[in-house]
C-alpha cells in the first residue's frame, strides 16, 4: 500500500525531518507515559519495602499461666492481621519463667531455617524436627546447624500480665520476633 512513499520521502528532506520528529516525539511521549504508569505499579508491588520492622506490644496472659522454673507454649494473634488470615495469624512462642518477673520468651522458629522447635522438659532442650538443631533451656545453641541461639522477644510485665514485643517472622537479618 505505502510502497512508493519511502522513495518520495528520500527526495524530500523536509518530510524526513517531520516524520523523524513525529517518531521521536512519539517514542519520547511513550517513555514518559510508561514511566508514569510504572511508578504506581512498582510502588504497589514493592510496598513492603517501606517498612522495616513491624512490632507491637502483645499480651500473652496473666503471670499465673506461667509457673516459675517452667517453659510453656503460649500463643497470640499477630497484631498485623487481615480478616482472611485464618489460623495463620495465630503465632506460638515459648515462655520460660525463671523466677518472679524474670522471663525469657523465645520465637518458635529455629534460627537455622525457621521450623518449629519443640521443648523437652526432662532433658531441658529445644529440638527442631527439620535438620536436628538443638538449643539449651536458655535458648542458646547446643548443637546442629543453627548459626545462633533462639530468637528472643522483648518482654515486660504490666498489671500482672506478660507482654511481648512482636509482630514479624524473625529471620537472621531481622532477629526481632
Amino acid at each position: 500500500m505505502a510502497v512508493h512513499e519511502p522513495q518520495q520521502s528520500q527526495t524530500t528532506p523536509p518530510d524526513i525531518s517531520r516524520r523523524g520528529f513525529l517518531f521521536a516525539l512519539g517514542v519520547g511521549l511513550n517513555v514518559v507515559a510508561a514511566t508514569l504508569v510504572a511508578i504506581p505499579i512498582i510502588g504497589y508491588v514493592f510496598s513492603s519495602f517501606r517498612y522495616k520492622t513491624l512490632q507491637e506490644w502483645i499480651q500473652l496472659g496473666p503471670l499465673a499461666n506461667f509457673p516459675e522454673g517452667q517453659t510453656r507454649l503460649a500463643t497470640y494473634r499477630n497484631p498485623f492481621t487481615s480478616p482472611w488470615d485464618g489460623s495463620t495469624a495465630d503465632i506460638p512462642c515459648w515462655v520460660r519463667r525463671l523466677d518472679g518477673e524474670k522471663f525469657q520468651v523465645f520465637a518458635i522458629n529455629c534460627t537455622h531455617l525457621g521450623c518449629p522447635v519443640r521443648w523437652f522438659q526432662e532433658s531441658g532442650l529445644f529440638m527442631c524436627p527439620c535438620h536436628g538443631g538443638v538449643y539449651y533451656a536458655d535458648g542458646s545453641r547446643a548443637s546442629g546447624p543453627p548459626p545462633r541461639g533462639l530468637f528472643e522477644y522483648e518482654y515486660k510485665v504490666q498489671n500482672g500480665h506478660l507482654w511481648v514485643l512482636g509482630g514479624q517472622l524473625p529471620t537472621l537479618s531481622s532477629p526481632e520476633a
Partner: peptide, 13 residues
C-alpha cells in the same frame, strides 16, 4: 523476606 511474604508474617497476603 517481607517482599516474599507480602507482610511481616506468613499469612493471607
Amino acid at each position: 523476606v517481607h517482599l516474599m511474604l507480602a507482610g511481616p508474617i506468613i499469612a493471607a497476603e
